[in-house]
Amino acid sequence: MDELKILLNDLWEVLKDIAYFFTVKLFSIGNSEITLITIVYLLISVILLNFFSNRLSKFIGNTVLKKYTTIPSTAQSVSTIIRYVFLIVGMMVIVQTAGIDLSALSILAGALGVGIGFGLQNITNNFISGIIILFEQPIKLGDRIEVGDIKGDVLKISARATTVVTNDNISVIVPNSEFISSTVINWSHNDRNVSFRFPVGVAYKEDPKRIKALLLEVAAENPGVLDSPAPDVLFDEFGDSSLNFFLRVWTSDFTSRPNILKSQLYYSIFEKFKTNNIEIPFPQQDLHLKSGFTQTNKS
């Protein structure tokens, strides 16, 4: 019995030492004393806040908003904004429940503002640009965009950067500020229907009306070409070696793969012209020699 009391007393002393270790003052922020247990509380709370904000954002975007909108980009934008609001409000609640005097953080906020002005301005710029993108939606999930030398489909819009996937399945991380400060070509801003013009040249002896009819047949036979708006053939110019046309087609299946559609149409055009004996010219140059050259007699 005495041994049990001694063991319990020793255990009690150890627990008091541990409690003292966690409650001893490390530093102060204003009138608030920061202890190890305060730091542990903050870390656990922030991790849980981030976890639940992600789950809440996905639940709202994938379940709630699907009942009110069929546009994935709109649901993603709203759910992301809700997540930011949840994080900001949650951080304020966590700091207050930890017993930290928020008024004492004004000096820290001022110093942080100076740091943002000098060292973190790019991060801040990208974050604010991300908020603008989510609200104004100049680009959306699934859009076919072109910014600088990058062409691809928008896969993800986050707080700092946007992920663009190219036709080679390469993910390119583009800072959000690029979409605000640079010229961006959005091929599918309103819808996925886009128009392409493919040049075609034939010999001068061919009938332009017949060429137009054959090119329209090729367009009509391709399942990737839309019937409405209808394909068209434009007579572009009298070239040096050929009559030049443009086959103009509309497509929604090949918005992100125009070269594939171009290849399919050119294969079909070649076969169609071959079957109908249409000559496809190649550049030619005639050399005319003027008279007056002296002839040398060979002995």
Results as ranks from 00 to 15, higher is better:
K58G: 01
F59W: 14
T63N: 14
T63H: 04
V64C: 09
K66S: 10
K66D: 07
K67W: 06
Y68M: 11
T69Y: 03
I71H: 05
P72W: 06
Q76R: 07
Q76I: 05
V78Y: 11
V78C: 03
I81Q: 00
R83I: 05
R83P: 02
V85R: 05
F86P: 02
L87P: 05
I88S: 09
V89R: 04
G90M: 02
V93W: 00
V93D: 00
I94C: 00
V95G: 04
Q96K: 14
G99V: 07
D101W: 07
D101Y: 06
L102E: 12
L102I: 14
S103A: 11
A104C: 06
A104N: 14
L105S: 13
S106K: 13
S106Y: 12
I107G: 14
L108C: 07
L108H: 12
G110A: 12
G110K: 04
A111W: 13
A111E: 01
G113S: 12
G113M: 10
G115I: 10
L120E: 03
Q121G: 01
N122P: 01
I123P: 00
I123M: 12
T124I: 06
N125Q: 09
G130W: 00
I131P: 00
I132S: 00
I133S: 01
F135S: 00
F135R: 00
E136D: 13
I139Q: 02
K140C: 06
K140E: 08
D143C: 08
D143L: 05
E146F: 04
V147R: 11
V147E: 12
G148V: 13
G148Q: 08
G148L: 09
D149H: 12
D149T: 14
I150A: 07
G152V: 06
D153A: 15
D153Y: 08
L155R: 15
K156N: 11
I157V: 15
S158V: 05
S158H: 09
